[in-house]
């Protein structure tokens, strides 16, 4: 019996890294565009730009996902 441990390990590693990475980046985007609840101050332009970059990265990941499904 041949168990493809390499493929299983790859799935495990890739899934973990990509999921945590994407969720982390997206959360940074959310944090960058939201005001801190304690102060109620609006986020600065730098934070806002960074946040949009995060969202763009996530959108790119979704695009890559669609590419994987179609291909």
């Amino acid at each position: 019996m041949q168990i493809d441990w390499a493929a299983l390990g790859q799935v495990f590693g890739v899934s973990l890294v990509v999921t945590v990475g994407l969720v982390g980046v997206f959360t940074l985007g959310i944090v960058g565009t939201s005001s801190a609840s304690a102060a109620g101050t609006q986020p600065g332009s730098l934070a806002r730009t960074g946040a949009y970059a995060c969202f763009a990265l996530c959108a790119a990941a979704v695009g890559y996902g669609i590419y994987l499904i179609v291909a």
Binding site: S15, T19, V23, G24, S37
Partner: peptide
């Protein structure tokens, strides 16, 4: 399960102190 668990912990940690309704 592991991926979602780690991701959930991370996102709660990063977004700590933010307004829940807004996030």
């Amino acid at each position: 399960g592991l991926a979602a668990m780690v991701a959930t912990r991370l996102t709660y940690r990063l977004a700590k102190g933010r307004d829940e309704k807004e996030t």
